[in-house]
Amino acid sequence: MKLRAFRSSDLMCRTVKGLGPAAGKSVVIRGPLATHASSCLRCQADLARYRRLRRELGRLAQYIEQSPVLMAPRVESAIGAQPALVTRRRHAARLVAAIAAATAAAAGTAAFSLWRRTRAAV
């Protein structure tokens, strides 16, 4: 008789344990299981731990971590929101173009003066 009662109680404990993760908002423990849980210290401890777990997880919503320092500049760079960077690149491109143009002009002038001198000599 005692053994049967123990088995029944053990089964109840296991059932309550199985319901533990879902117990709370959506699943409510009712009937014989609720009667058992109200008098079983093991089940009470188990359910209390699940309740606390969910409460602690809910609190994590307020726990905000700091993002890496370079994240925002990288996003800005990716979407082209950094005019300074773009301007710097444009400046560099303009400088290269100016140097190329000056070199070409100098070469042209030298070639022209050489051609004139050659022509005058003839």
């Binding site: 971590e65 925002a72 979407i79």
Partner: peptide, 20 residues
């Protein structure tokens, strides 16, 4: 784009937290 960068700076920590 500048307004969006401001939004990025406002939300970057919470976005990073969720991603992490």
């Amino acid at each position: 784009r500048t307004a969006f960068s401001d939004l990025v700076r406002l939300h970057q920590d919470e976005v990073f937290t969720l991603a992490n």
